[in-house]
Design a protein around this nucleic acid. Structure first.
Lengths: 151, 151
DNA sequence: CCTAATTAGTTTCATATGTAACCATTATGG
DNA sequence: CCATAATGGTTACATATGAAACTAATTAGG
């Protein structure tokens, strides 16, 4: 008769246990800690760092391809690209077959900076993962995929 | 001799597998989907919703206590409180013993709104968790705590 | 071909967020 | 007591972000 609910009385919401809230806190904390690694030191914000990261692996890419790979909208990408161009960290050439498209790639100094940041980022990730068992890591990864699908 | 690294060549960063990035994407996706539930319909943004959520359970609270419970900084709380006061969703009285402190609680209409939102939020959470096994849920929760500590 | 619809990317404007400076009140130390 | 520090909260300014309007180039349909 008494319907026993899993959480609490089913119409009480404990923020500190609420999944979207916890996700948000963890993501924000991690993201901030990481940007301290490269933010101050290299003068990059998150969108800029993401653009450099994908260009480091997949260049040349058009801005819209960068959008897909980073899940950022085109405004964010456009702004990051503008800033990176001004600092000379990336280069842009017009696609010969489609003059709307602009091919982006890291410049020489951009590549150098990229090679500096990547190890820092990977170290930080290693540090995060260090506390987790192999099983926890696997579950986490699977759960992310599931959450993304049902969100 | 060849040092076999777990990921890829150890100095390559695959953004789509990079933990901070994935966390950020998942959190953002979930957060947006959820705010659609209450954002448009009730005219609340995330900070405002969080303030209402904690006041719904723990009122009366001072603004700084709200900060602790929501992990938001005091500026964010102050702004959310101002907006909620203007809409008459919360009330504020001055603490008699310390006139710096202002005690916050939901107003009558605020309480009514809270009772409308909470089931929606819990439903959404249930939907997210529905795809996960009990084991996955437990691991997720434990992993969040670990990540927060090492971040 | 020539117009309408699409696509790539940028700009604009309105809103959100963070840092630091700020005001008011209460606590502390000589 | 009185000056100084600490606390609670708000304001101001600078930067970040998102939605929608816009420009330029390409494609599609008649």
């Amino acid at each position: 008769m008494g319907k026993t609910e899993r959480h609490n009385s089913a119409d009480e919401l404990a923020l500190e246990r609420f999944l979207p809230y916890r996700l948000s806190i963890v993501a924000q904390t991690v993201s901030r800690a990481l940007s301290k690694q490269y933010g101050k030191r290299f003068g990059l914000n998150v969108p800029q760092w993401r653009v450099m990261a994908v260009l480091g692996r997949f260049a040349p890419l058009s801005a819209s391809q960068v959008c897909e790979r980073t899940v950022m909208d085109k405004v964010a990408v456009s702004r990051a690209v503008t800033a990176l161009l001004q600092r000379g960290l990336i280069e842009r050439t017009t696609d010969s077959t489609d003059r709307r498209r602009l091919a982006l790639r890291l410049s020489k100094p951009g590549g150098a900076l990229h090679r500096q940041i990547v190890p820092l980022a990977l170290d930080y990730e290693r540090q995060l993962l260090a506390g987790l068992s192999a099983q926890e890591r696997a579950t986490l990864s699977a759960v992310f995929d599931k959450l993304l699908r049902s969100a």
